[in-house]
Write a protein that binds this DNA or RNA. Structure first.
Lengths: 148, 148
DNA sequence: CGGAAAAGCGTGTCCGACGCACGCTAAAGT
DNA sequence: ACTTTAGCGTGCGTCGGACACGCTTTTCCG
């Protein structure tokens, strides 16, 4: 083998993927944030946080789900008060999905919990390593093998 | 903010997760490897490659699936000749799931394709960066925030 | 040593999620 | 003005996942 780096990274990524999709992790990150926030609805919520107000169809393209699936999940989130539907002022057919303050809070809390968890595990690292890792990971993701 | 590293890494990981679960990626990596290998059955196959011969229940714990779900997916893989069932010599109730040569080939091919893809994207990196990234990623995964 | 309890497996069955198809309303095109 | 297209919600068919049951074998204990 001339260069084992590819295999090393592939193995680590596989492990990372498996760990991060373990059921327990999501439950920990969203604990106490309401029954409506689960593995299914959270991607819709956080996708909406990324895109800003948009239609169910656009959000579906963003998160890789069918339009109708987004609608159904949005129903639950709306009932829980985490998002609301607004009429698009420019198009009277369209309905915009908009995060409520509560919904933004859920996303922010979840993200901060994850970030804190990551920082905890990096606490024992040399500062230079932590910075280097953050930088290299960012580059890897942006122009990486999953066709950016 | 005293240290933005946690948020930076969290955001990059989120992006990585979304990209890597995009439907197209798995299709590319397993192209031409048979109809039986899809997003559902591959985790069983690769899990079995990690554990070696084991029972459906043990494999279920490994990959985070119910015992019966593993059985059903193993049925498809067995029909395709990628794994076989063997009687456990030490326990006549137990059935061991064992990869066939074809099954090992599928796992190996998929892994090599992924590794090659990763190496391609790293080709333009300084060699020191690539080595550092592989090392740091490994440490991050091993003793990282997802309760190693 | 023998019977009860437990472990292992496969399958029948229910439940939930997903996506297609339909019908409706509104916008755009001709 | 009429047709075509875009957007949305909802009723259904389909599929995957987990629980519950029955069977066999092993283990435990009296």
């Amino acid at each position: 083998m001339t260069n084992p780096t590819g295999h090393e990274i592939a193995e680590a990524l596989g492990l990372l993927l498996r760990r991060s999709t373990r059921a327990g992790l999501h439950a920990q990150l969203t604990e106490g944030l309401g029954e409506a926030v689960d593995e299914l609805t959270y991607p819709v919520l956080s996708g909406l946080a990324r895109t800003g107000p948009c239609s169910a169809a656009d959000l579906g393209r963003e998160v890789g789900l069918d339009r109708t699936t987004v609608t159904r999940r949005a129903d639950r989130l709306e009932e829980a008060g985490l998002l609301r539907r607004e009429a698009d002022p420019g198009d009277r057919r369209a309905t915009l999905l908009v995060l409520t303050d509560a919904g933004q809070g859920v996303v922010r809390t979840t993200r901060e919990r994850l970030a804190a968890r990551i920082e905890d595990s990096l606490a024992s690292w040399p500062a230079a390593d932590a910075r280097a890792f953050a930088r290299l990971l960012r580059v890897f993701v942006d122009e990486g093998p999953f066709h950016a």
